[in-house]
Amino acid sequence: MTATRQLLKHAPAGKSRLIWSRVIARVCNYLFCLVVGSLMLLPLIWLVRSSLMSLDQIFRYPPELVPKPLQWQNYPEALTTIPFFLYLQNTVFILLPSVLGTVVTATLAAFGFSRLRWRGRDLVFNVLLSSLMLPYAITLIPTFILWARLGLVNSTWPLIVPRWFGGGAFYIFLLRQFFRTIPRELDEAALLDGANPLHILWFIIVPLSRPALIAVTIFSALSAWNDFLGPLIYLNDSNKFTLALGLSEFAGLYSSQWHLLMAAAFVVIAPVALLFFFAQKYFIRGIALTATK
């Protein structure tokens, strides 16, 4: 602000109007940011507030903002009403092999599509990429029937195995975009030293691609954590449910116990939000990377 005043003092009359309009623009900008930001946060604040209230206080009108007293036992209660830790374990047992499969096979594919030359490579890549625009609804039913024929419905195989086959065109695309920014001279230097393609992948590409690999790890972990339709279709026994499925079941069974529901929802959200806070730059860069040609 003092800087602005100084600028104003030395500026000629026409300029000062310009500077003032800039100051006003900035203030408006901040105001907009503040308003939108609080609107974005409000639902989450409401979630936390409701998760700490007694059922009695939650159904009071007009609604109160601050829980009084803070009812922490909503959390243990919510987590024991549904077998939370079982669901967490189920989710992790699907998530870990899925992420590993995605990272390994998408890295290999992206390497094969960007650093190694073979006939028909770009054609094959474009065909593969077209599956990004394919509606998932079209593959849903035959895929289900395939697993049903194999007798593997109501198991975690249908949720894990496809991840070991490239993990999805999106991740291959993202990694390929990144690999292409690594200078080719490095490959050539390694070749002179007698390296083979897998050496190049392991000693040059992988160490230099950490941000992209982390982004793929994060995105694939989130998609496994958030996946709802997959578990809904393939898992029938409630002792095989994932957290997402468990939360939906909980919402159906205890539809008026909002304090417990909000506590359960908070527990499902919290790990993802934490991950986002600590790994924000990988989120942002990863998303931005997919939008560049």
Partner: peptide, 30 residues
């Protein structure tokens, strides 16, 4: 060059199989 082409195909093989099994196959199937 031959080695490169060989490894190129090997590297993308899982992704291509995945595409055939979980994309193209199901489209025809449905």
């Amino acid at each position: 060059r031959t080695k490169e082409a060989f490894w190129g195909v090997v590297c993308v093989l899982p992704a291509i199989l995945g595409f055939l099994l979980w994309q193209l196959g199901p489209i025809v199937g449905s």
